[in-house]
Design a protein around this nucleic acid. Structure first.
Lengths: 228, 228
DNA sequence: TGCCGTCTTGATCGATTCTTGATCCCTCCT
DNA sequence: AGGAGGGATCAAGAATCGATCAAGACGGCA
């Protein structure tokens, strides 16, 4: 069964879209707030998401960025705003498509099929668990275990570790990490990185902490003690 | 180099779109007929294609279908027709996106980035590496290896070596190097260059150090011992 | 409202890197 | 042969960067 998550704060839109999708045989989940959407995306892992940009509690672009940090689920943005700049930002932050309201249902359905088609054929469904040394990082569940035991990390700590673990052994620049964890506008706050690197090391203990190394003047990297 | 194929039978559109893509650093191929488009798609395998639906000799949808039988190259359809039915057909026949003319260039570029992004992430993606003699300079990782072993360089040392390695064998003037590594306002501090050239030579050892040669009164160059 | 965990910010300390000046060397020119 | 100009090297002080601690600021939740 293919499941689609629909997120919108207008009940009327929610009903209409849901009806159209159900008629085509999809299973549909609905959410009317950003929090709810993020919860369903982690807990139920739908096959695609239709996301309104204007939600009460969160900006749609922010949701895109958050979701993209752990999942490749196709996201189609639905928005009443035709603003070109918004479109560009949303697409660059991870949205796969952008449809302007009012939209035609057949077109939306066709774009959903495109999104699902991409997801269907690819190279083996990705295991969303990153492994590096004794560390296992479950991106969807936001859980880190080290040698089998869970490590308690705050959201920002987790995000930073995950960003580094996504490119094991590789240096990520300060800018890159800040942009990925804190979003745009924090590009120069390198002090955050020092603080969080320090806390992560402390929580990972002696052996684990040594995996997170600073590259002076450049950034940080997470090394697997097994290689090099 | 990322290559985009643009197919349209109106020269004006072709020029406009090409200019926008080239300005963003893409390589652009153009075609004004279906036959030409199919030829380039097989012969040159671009990284993505922008395809007008209304061509003289073939229907755009037909091209989509044909291409899809052997290739997953991302296809973005550009069309003056807003007909909902055409959109649905094109999307179902293999198009990844459908943009209606007139379109905004920034939005089109964003959608191109979305299409390319999908194609991008296979794991073993190697970074572009500059090679000169036994030296390998990985710009993305900020890592230099010499005959396979890593060389520890400070940021400025790395920047200077990278600047020279970008143009192997060619002389870069003092001004050029200073401008590239230290930024504007240091154009006359040629003493810095002597100090850093010295340190780089020391770290590269006997054979490697000989590759960094001074051109008295002009600047420095990095020579590959293999040639000249 | 008050509590609690998280995030931000400032201060301090140690280490590395950058800058700068002194000294020696080589080459070219007269 | 001697001097001038440019280059190489060394070493010490200055500036920067990173690690860590700790004190507010902020926001969610009971």
């Amino acid at each position: 069964m293919t499941t689609i998550l629909v997120v919108d704060d207008e009940p009327a839109i929610l009903r209409t879209v849901k009806a159209g999708l159900v008629a085509r045989g999809y299973e549909v989940q609905t959410a009317s707030s950003g929090r709810e959407a993020l919860f369903l995306l982690t807990a139920r892992t739908p096959d695609a998401a239709l996301l309104d940009l204007a939600l009460g509690d969160m900006d749609g672009v922010e949701i895109c960025r958050t979701v993209r940090s752990w999942s490749d689920v196709p996201i189609i943005v639905l928005s009443a705003e035709g603003s070109e700049h918004r479109k560009v930002v949303a697409l660059d932050e991870g949205a796969d498509d952008y449809v302007t309201k009012p939209f035609s249902m057949p077109e939306l359905l066709a774009r959903v099929r495109v999104a699902l088609r991409r997801r269907a054929d690819p190279r083996g469904a990705d295991d969303p668990v990153l492994v590096c040394g004794g560390l296992e990082i479950d991106l969807a569940r936001h859980v880190v275990t080290q040698a089998g035991v869970a490590v308690e990390l705050t959201p920002k700590e987790f995000a930073m570790l995950a960003a580094l673990a996504r490119h094991p052994g590789r240096v990520l620049t300060h800018r890159t990490i800040l942009h990925e964890v804190w979003g745009p506008g924090y590009d120069t706050e390198t002090q955050y990185l020092r603080v969080y690197a320090s806390q992560i090391r402390k929580k990972l203990g002696r052996a684990g902490g040594a995996m997170l190394v600073a590259e002076p003047g450049i950034g940080y990297r997470l090394v697997d003690p097994a290689d090099a």
